[in-house]
Design a protein around this nucleic acid. Structure first.
Lengths: 199, 199
DNA sequence: GTCTATAGATTGATAGAC
DNA sequence: GTCTATCAATCTATAGAC
């Protein structure tokens, strides 16, 4: 992040650009969450990333590629989170910590909903194939949750995982629609109690 | 629907129009569900309702008014449904029938998600005040559900109602994202079992 | 009341100077 | 590599003929 010529992995930037591409991706993910993909213009993203409008196309040839990059950012964030949670001793600790994290973001959820759920929901109404990329990330979350329930000795771990992620997506949507962060707190506590009852 | 000069209630149509306004509202609600509000043009709605584009503005001065009318249609549909369910003998019968209806629409949910949940989610990312209209309709559904749990003797009827509607919204979103109608069946059965356990 | 034509404003994307 | 200027397409909304 300090010197130049870092990150030789990503496709576009040949030599320089001090993280401009990363700035654009972060800005895109944030603005997509706040305004929705369809309502967001490239100008909005450029402004949020402090990059001139026309320069965006040097890094991303289309708007769809920016959406794809935002999905990738969500995937990375999810990987980081689960890696952190995996350090906790028991599966139920990990699951309850996950729920606790969601509750901690209740104010953001009340304003804009779940950052990934609202994105997945919107992408499903588009003709491009990006909805499948979103589905892959959602599956990653369900898979991790399933492993926890499996470790707790449940044969129906998959169904339990789907139930839990469904509960999260649903309470995020209601929290957002009703603009009530407390709803997230109450339902989160209920969810944690449910996890305890399965331990 | 056969003769003219029907329906003297709605604001716009002075004398004629054989349900053109109603056709536009129905078409709007459907296309909004399939494509999302932001991606839908007035041309799309006009085509679906078999009405010339420019004529739309005789009935609705802005696109927002069409969105508002679509919300109203959802509210009406909800009123009709709950009125029907209220004829069932016990509260748990009514709640389980509601869930059964959701499961029956699993193919539609897999394609486009919950007709009202996706709309509410999208409206929350707009600056107009239509998100509050959506919140009102969502509250109507929660209120009705709460009354059922209350009739079953539960003091925490409100929380239970929020849990149940959350579960529905969440499983609709996952069914849609993963394109898997069976998910709705499995989770619906789980939800019905949960209702039984509370009876 | 119904419809065509078009205005007026945005937006995604490109060309080309620096 | 960076940025300005602009094209071409699209969309909401209006004016006005019928």
């Amino acid at each position: 992040m300090t010197d130049s010529q870092v990150q030789a992995d990503r496709p576009a930037p040949r030599a320089k650009a001090p993280g401009k591409r990363e700035r654009l991706i972060t800005a895109a993910a944030q603005v997509f969450h706040e305004q929705g993909v369809e309502k967001t213009t490239l100008g909005d993203i450029a402004r949020a990333a402090d990059v001139p409008v026309g320069n965006v196309y040097y890094y991303f040839k289309t708007k769809d590629q920016l959406v794809e990059a935002a999905i990738g950012a969500h995937a990375q964030q999810l990987q980081d989170l689960t890696a952190l949670l995996d350090q906790l001793p028991t599966p139920q600790d990990r699951l309850k910590a996950l729920v606790g994290g969601w509750v901690g973001q209740r104010d953001l959820a009340a304003r804009f909903g779940c950052p990934f759920g609202t994105l997945a929901s919107e992408l499903d109404k588009r003709d491009d194939g990006l909805d499948q990329a979103a589905a892959t990330v959602m599956r990653l979350l369900i898979d991790w949750t399933e492993r926890q329930f499996r470790a707790m000795g449940h044969d129906d771990a998959r169904d339990l995982a789907v139930t839990m992620i469904s509960a999260y997506q649903g309470m995020s949507l209601l929290t957002n629609t009703l603009r009530d962060p407390d709803l997230m707190t109450t339902q989160g506590a209920r969810l944690q109690g449910w996890i305890d009852s399965l331990a």
